[in-house]
Design a protein around this nucleic acid. Structure first.
Lengths: 344, 344
DNA sequence: TACATTGATGTAATCGTTTACACGCAGATG
DNA sequence: CATCTGCGTGTAAACGATTACATCAATGTA
């Protein structure tokens, strides 16, 4: 493959001149520039980013380590990040941690070896020594969606507390009192936060949350299904199952369907995370939507600021409740909370 | 950041020795190796993949340019590719073409500059000069999902002809005769192929396909919705809408729902591409499923063979029909094809 | 005419690796 | 004792770009 040297020879100039026109960094005679460009064209020259990065110590590339690429939330996030990064002149290399700390570290390591200019990380669980090391080394790093306590790293995330409060009040208004939550892992900040917001909102509404109504999931579909199964097997099963993310909602839906239970008369369902197909489920699923695209865009901008030595600040955006019909409709079950019979 | 030179100094050896233990390429005295490893640890040395690639002319990285990252088909594909690549010691850099040739070329260019060892490409539409150039240069390249005629490039894809035939016979058996197809872009091999298979299957079943029943979509949700709208506005609307991919099926579903039409009594729906949530739609959607993961794995293996100079061959896998209830159930509408009234 | 200024270009060092080749030393062999 | 073998290690030249510095011609100025 042709190199600057070849181009220089072909154009009858030095490599320095070639480099100059390629970067239009310095004054170059128009006629010379034309000759160089012609040579580039003729030889099909393509700049070697590897060599360039070695010399300039910058790859114009950012790393993105996400929790689970099959989770539509992360997919949409990745998409937005990609777009914003491209607009800012960066490429994105994605690593899929699959919610496993070892795999997260694998990608962080690989990306650091590849000398990305900065890293966007949706941290899984614990602070690994590797991550701690990055922070200590001053590697440009931004946490996304989740955060890790005790580490001074800018974070871009959504806060769902208000929306969860609104959801609980909505359920209360519909007459529901026995509401169960399938939480994410307590090791994840998002898991903890949503659980805390849920229990606080329940307390504020004067509703109790028996321990058995707090199922611990792991943000994957299978755990949603298992959690729903345990809840439905309870002597006094809940009237509502609120899943802590979209995959667990899918799992819960699977279980409810497998048992032939009607929604919302036999059991109601709500989901943290909103998805396009939720409107097509029967009945459409009430959900809490995050500003996913904005999250992605902001994260890239914060990281770029960090890389280019501008001041940075964490970002917190609000999630919002989207009411549909999977928890019942006003009047359907009355406002006084009578126990759940199935209205035909 | 520490370099081999620092490690060498710290361990009291030469850089060559350090490199040797890092690659365990050559005999090194165990005691020396230990000293080097200790120095690596002490300095927190991380090998610079950029410099390494420059020297070895290999990045152990493959590029993947997909059609649309928001399309679950491609997401699942990317996931499988990632896994297989990691197993083979490669990293994957993903570019999202968003079904636009210009963006495809943007990523191909970027990835070539980054000197990926090979490229997995889901080609959008026409053969661009850039792609033709790659082939001419002998760049390791594999087409995935789609192919481009007249180019000698190994391709890994699924053939849905048989499954489409089975679907048409299934519909016929259910008594449907007026079946419409929302096709993908004729510029894409997958678009053409599915349309051809559909019309052939219809002919074989002795069914007619009026021109108006062939809607041209672009594999995106909006076009599915628009296509469905036009079909439903026809003086004699079809009994079945068959969408050429999952996003267009989602769009069609949107339109059908917006009109308050019952499925399958008012209009039936089938989709090319199967999705986990199709079972949760009311009624569950009959679909043609592709062996997505196998497709991804095979593609990586073919590309790796190509990169490592082993002989390669194209791969064609079969898609299969998954019957659910969105086209009706045996007996529901009778086997004799009476015209579609809505049974309450 | 002599000298400073400016603009265009070239020379060569450098980035962090890998690796061909050379070297020295120990033990084996004649 | 001279020589050979082979192992462990070091020296230095790449890889392909960028860029500080040097050079040189042309022009302007005193």
């Amino acid at each position: 493959m042709a190199s600057v040297k070849d181009v220089a020879r072909h154009a009858g100039v030095s490599v320095a001149t070639v480099s100059r026109v390629l970067n239009d960094s310095d004054r170059v005679a128009p006629e010379t520039r034309a000759r160089v460009l012609a040579a580039v064209e003729a030889l099909g020259y393509r700049r070697n980013a590897v060599a360039r990065s070695l010399r300039t110590d910058a790859t114009r590339t950012i790393g993105l380590v996400i929790g689970d690429i099959l989770n539509p939330f992360f997919t949409e996030l990745a998409r937005a990040i990609e777009d914003e990064a491209r607009a800012l002149g960066y490429s994105v290399v994605i690593g899929n941690a699959d919610e496993r700390p070892d795999r997260q570290d694998h990608y962080v390591r690989t990306l650091l070896e590849q000398r990305v200019d900065g890293l966007l990380l949706c941290p899984t669980a614990e602070i690994t020594p590797l991550v701690r090391g990055m922070v200590a080394d001053g590697q440009p790093l931004v946490f996304l969606d989740r955060t890790l306590p005790g580490l001074d790293v800018p974070t871009v995330r959504a806060d769902g507390s208000a929306a969860i409060g609104a959801l609980v009040r909505h359920l209360r208004g519909l007459g529901h009192r026995r509401i169960a939550f399938i939480s994410g892992p307590a090791l994840l900040s998002t898991g903890r936060e949503r659980t805390a917001a849920f229990t606080a909102a329940m307390r504020d509404c004067g509703l109790e949350v028996p321990d058995a109504y707090l199922e611990a999931g792991d943000f994957q579909a299978a755990s949603g299904r298992a959690g729903a199964a345990r809840l439905l097997d309870l002597p006094e099963p809940p009237e509502v199952i609120f899943a802590g993310d979209n995959l667990m909602a899918l799992g819960a839906l699977d279980e409810i369907r497998a048992r032939g239970l009607a929604i919302p008369s036999a059991v109601a369902l709500a989901s943290y995370d909103d998805l396009p197909w939720f409107t097509h489920v029967d009945p459409p699923v009430t959900a809490i939507g995050q500003p996913v695209q904005e999250l992605g865009r902001r994260a890239v901008r914060v990281l770029a600021d960090r890389i280019e030595d501008r001041p940075v600040e964490s970002v917190v955006l609000a999630a919002r409740l989207v009411v549909r019909r999977s928890c019942g409709e006003p009047g359907e079950r009355g406002e006084h909370g009578e126990e759940g019979g199935s209205p035909a």
